[in-house]
Amino acid sequence: MPLFTVVVPSFGRPAYLSDAIKTIFQQTVRDFEVIVVDDASPEPVEVDDARVRVVRLPVNSGPAAARNHGVAMSDSQYVALLDDDDRWHPERLAMALAAFGRAPIAICGQSPTGIRRLEGFVHDVVLDGLTPNPGATALRRSAWVPMDESYRAAEDLAWWLDLSESFAVATVSAQGLFVREHDGVRRGYGADKRITSSLRLLEERRGYFDMHPRAASFRWKRIGLMHDKLGQRDQARSAYLRSIRIRPTLASLAHYGRTFRG
Rank of each mutant, 00 (worst) to 15 (best):
V36G: 01
R51G: 07
L225A: 07
R87N: 00
R219H: 09
V59Q: 13
T137Y: 02
R141H: 09
K193D: 13
F11Y: 15
R206D: 14
E181L: 12
D192I: 12
K193T: 08
Q27F: 12
D234M: 07
V7S: 03
L177E: 00
A170T: 12
P134G: 10
L127S: 01
L118S: 05
R51N: 04
T131K: 03
A143R: 11
V36Q: 00
V54W: 00
H89N: 14
L118K: 01
D162V: 05
I115H: 11
A20H: 08
R205F: 10
A170P: 07
Q26H: 14
D19S: 15
G190F: 06
L81M: 15
W88M: 01
F11I: 09
L81W: 03
G12M: 06
E149G: 07
S76W: 10
E91S: 14
V47Y: 03
T131V: 15
A106L: 08
L118W: 10
I24P: 03
S142W: 06
T5Q: 06
R242G: 07
G262L: 13
A99V: 00
D38G: 01
A15C: 05
A50G: 14
F167S: 11
Q235N: 13
V6L: 14
L230N: 10
I195F: 00
D228T: 13
P9W: 01
I195D: 02
G176F: 01
I35L: 13
A143D: 08
S150L: 04
V37E: 04
P112H: 09
V145N: 02
M1S: 15
K221P: 02
A236C: 02
E149S: 13
T23Q: 10
R87T: 12
K229I: 05
H89M: 05
D192A: 15
Q77Y: 06
A136C: 05
V79N: 04
M211F: 03
K229E: 14
L201V: 04
R117G: 08
N68E: 04
A66Q: 05
A170W: 08
H255T: 13
S173L: 12
I115Y: 07
S61M: 13
V125D: 11
G62M: 02
Y240P: 10
V122D: 04
A138C: 14
G109M: 03
H89K: 02
V79W: 02
W144E: 05
A20M: 06
D183R: 12
P9G: 13
V36F: 03
K221I: 03
L163C: 07
G114A: 05
L201Y: 11
Q26K: 14
A254T: 08
A98M: 11
V126I: 15
D31F: 11
F218I: 04
I21E: 02
R102K: 15
V185G: 05
P213I: 09
